[in-house]
Design a protein around this nucleic acid. Structure first.
Length: 418
RNA sequence: GUGGGCGUAGCUCAGCUGGUAGAGCACUCGGUUGUGGUCCGAGAUGUCGCGGGUUCGAGCCCCGUCGCUCACCCCA
């Protein structure tokens, strides 16, 4: 194409019809379980003070060190397009005193997030997540419920070819004991400079390296799971027990690593089998130090982020998406100027009563309009001309059967509701 | 940041050892004066990503460039 042609910025996900319908469906499936569990909407800005993320997410993470969209606003403040949801929710909870009321505070959100990465299948620079956060309760039962809510979302879509990985990162005590031994172990490995630097920032990251020589070398590394304090272990055992009781199958993955520094205790990840390299469709965990880190009270929290784009990709990979699940109740074809006006009135009436109504504007040939009606998937069609308006009755055609019946315009609503 | 693949109509793609573009789908109109799906006919749509080079001649070969895509690092 010519270079003057405008196009979307690199690596963003866009959803246009008809696929946008599937996107909407997937997103709603992921949101509804949270609503049913008493979580309430929190709608936040897509940009925040950069410091929120450097402090909240952690400077050692790739997300913060090289993937943030950061810029200066006109007042010279450093602003960043949100790369994830939890930090912003914590900020708002503290700012609005939601942590002073009934606990836990249970919130859900849905929207766009941004990371300046090299795009690939299932990884976009602007992507969509649905997330929840439960703040102020460290009962293992809520860990299980949070996981169950995510699972219910995926199941509502119809997904089945995925697994749930869980582990516990323990409390601060558990982690520092493990870290000492892990660092010692890593020091015995022969690593390139970049990997060494990464290990220094967060040695756990090496567990997630996909290069086979690294994975092999890490086989004998000490596992955090073996360093859990009694309290952390007991908490984690309970979580597993509750998941079993819920009939949610899980896989213990002691090598699982999450990319954000705030995670503690229970962490989990949903991995889909049919996706490419970016197979994580959702994940989350506890973040018991985050509130305090951001200047709030010492409150624990747990939450998840689910990838809407990836869940859609997964649904398509499992052939779950029906191409035409949207249908209008009625399609009106007006013939002439008066009919056009009357159509608008009829449509407005019926829409007020809850019907989905489309009108074929543009004075096209009747055959073309019928074709458009057919394509739209409308259940019924009426042709509205002068004779119909004067007589007050129309031929209501049921598209599927082709049968028409004569009904008065005033009784359309009852005819459509049959 | 690193590596591979690919750029031809709105979409999916074909285009032979170089001879200045084609199919299917979709779209519009007609066959059928105010009733869709099938069928038949007609029509519209391209600076072959862009720039340069080789050649009598480039969609095809060469160089550059931009874009897309997949993978690595990492993540939803």
């Amino acid at each position: 194409m010519a270079k003057a042609k405008l196009q979307a910025p690199k690596g963003v996900s866009e959803y246009v019809p008809p696929r946008s319908r599937a996107f909407e469906f997937v997103r709603d499936c992921l949101i509804n379980p949270a609503r049913k569990a008493g979580y309430q909407l929190i709608e936040l800005p897509v940009f925040e003070d950069t410091e929120l993320f450097t402090r909240g997410v952690g400077e050692s993470t790739d997300v913060v060190s090289k993937e943030m969209y950061t810029f200066e606003d006109r007042g010279g403040r450093s602003i960043t397009l949100r790369p994830e949801g939890t930090a912003g929710v914590m900020r708002a909870v503290i700012e609005h005193g939601l942590d002073r009321g009934q606990l836990p505070a249970k919130l859900w959100y849905s929207g766009a997030f941004f990371r300046a990465e090299r795009p690939q299948a299932g990884r976009y620079r602007q992507f969509y997540q649905v997330g929840i956060e439960a703040i102020g309760l460290d009962d293992p039962a809520i860990d299980a419920e949070v996981i169950a809510i995510a699972d219910a979302g995926f199941k509502a879509i119809g997904l089945s070819k995925y697994r749930l990985d869980i582990t516990s990162l323990g409390d601060a005590q558990s982690r520092s004991a493990h870290r000492v031994d892990l660092v010692k172990f890593i020091a015995t490995l022969d690593l390139d400079e970049a990997t060494k630097a990464r290990a220094e920032l967060n040695p756990l990251r090496l567990f997630d390296d996909k290069r086979s020589e690294i994975a092999q070398a890490m086989q004998g590394a000490p596992l955090l799971m073996d360093y859990l304090s009694d309290a952390s272990r007991a908490h984690f055992e309970k979580v597993k027990e509750y998941l079993d009781a819920l009939g949610i199958s899980w896989t213990l993955n002691p090598r699982m690593v999450r990319g954000l520094d705030y995670y503690t205790g229970t962490t989990f990840e949903f991995v889909h089998e049919l996706l490419g390299a970016q197979s994580g469709i959702g994940g989350g965990g506890r973040y018991d130090g985050l509130m305090a880190e951001l200047g709030g009270q010492e409150l624990s929290g747990i939450g998840f982020g689910l990838g809407v784009d990836r869940a859609l990709l997964a649904a398509e990979a499992e052939s779950l998406i029906e191409s035409d699940d949207f249908v209008s109740d009625l399609f009106i074809i007006p013939l002439g100027e008066l009919a056009k006006r009357t159509s608008l009135e009829i449509a407005a009436q019926l829409r007020k009563l809850g019907k989905t109504v489309e009108i074929a504007f543009g004075d096209r040939a009747l055959k073309g309009a019928m074709k458009a009606a057919d394509k739209s998937g409308a259940k019924y069609v009426i042709v509205l001309g002068d004779s119909e308006i004067t007589s007050g009755s129309v031929e209501l055609k049921e598209m599927k059967s082709g049968i028409t019946s004569s009904v008065t315009i005033d009784s359309l609503i009852t005819a459509l509701s049959k």
